[in-house]
Design a binder for these strands. Structure first.
Length: 270
DNA sequence: CGGTAGACCTGTTCGC
DNA sequence: TGCGAACAGGTCTACC
């Protein structure tokens, strides 16, 4: 699922359903998902209540009584809440058994997602968080400008760099460039301070709107029949026709990622 | 250090 | 229809 807005939707939904539930035990069917020793991970989580769920960028942080762990969904990770004993899906890799007869299941077709124990109180001061950038909502122009100004990489590639901004993924990077009226190939160093200020505010706007709409849900989060997640209205990503000028949307590769843009509306290079 | 392929996985879609 | 290549919401590593 996961760019920042989708992870935020998962966070809110999970929090709504499993806050204060107790983890009675954990099963792990694919060890690589757990970056710690699996036995340690299972042992630490046993009999802990889920007291809170935080998010930083695309990371979820589960806060327990005495410990905490982070979860990154990468490309296809999903959490589902199922009644105890309902049939396991082929791609369910981690199961958290809850004391109320439900199970929180981590499902991940491509097995890219990762979980790891972290410091409960000061996790932001340790890896991976201490090296990450800022949420566009909290960004300061000077800091971002300093980073962008040093780089010859395309701005669209820089938007994906989690050391600069957190939470922006491939879809929203494309959408942000479109809303900026900016060619995604524009080099970071070409952006003026004023343009960076605009980038921050449009970035914040795009992510906030997506959160309001419940994230772009293609593989829908399916917690106990809770649907109602809208699909975010996308302007360019995977589109054929430009919503503004009705011209053709072009697709190119930048930094190995599919990049969509309108050659008419995103002509300007700064 | 900056930047770019390749790796990690499975499933779906596209082209011949 | 079949079959391999390319691609998918992400990040790390190895290597110029």
């Amino acid at each position: 699922m996961p760019e920042g807005p989708e992870v935020e939707t998962v966070r809110r939904t999970l929090k709504h359903f499993i806050l204060d539930a107790k983890i009675t035990s954990v099963d792990v069917f694919y060890d690589k998902i757990i970056e710690d020793d699996t036995a340690l991970f299972k042992g630490v989580l046993k009999d802990q209540h889920i007291r809170d769920i935080d998010r930083f960028g695309k990371y979820l942080i589960f806060i327990l009584d005495d410990y905490a762990f982070i979860s990154h969904l990468r490309m296809e990770g999903k959490f589902n809440i199922k009644p105890q004993g309902s049939p396991l899906d082929k791609h369910d890799h981690v199961v958290f058994y809850l004391n109320d007869g439900r199970e929180l299941r981590y499902n991940d077709t491509r097995k890219f997602g990762r979980m790891k124990l972290c410091d409960k109180l000061h996790y932001l001061s340790y890896p991976p968080f201490n090296k990450l950038g800022v949420d566009p909502h909290d960004a300061h122009v000077e800091d971002v400008y300093d980073k962008l100004h040093k780089s010859a990489l395309p701005i669209k590639t820089l938007l994906l760099d989690q050391h600069i901004f957190v939470g922006i993924g491939n879809i929203y990077a494309n959408e942000i460039c479109f809303r900026m009226g900016m060619d995604p190939r524009t080099r970071g160093k070409r952006l003026s301070k004023k343009r960076v200020a605009q980038l921050i505010s449009i970035g914040d706007e795009v992510l906030s709107e997506a959160i309001r709409q419940g994230g772009t849900t293609i593989h829908s989060f399916d917690a106990n029949g809770i649907h109602g997640l809208f699909q975010v209205q996308l302007d360019v990503h995977m589109q054929k026709t430009c919503k503004k000028c009705h011209g053709e949307i072009k697709k190119i590769m930048l930094g190995g990622r599919g990049t969509y843009y309108c050659p008419v509306c995103q002509k300007r290079r700064y």
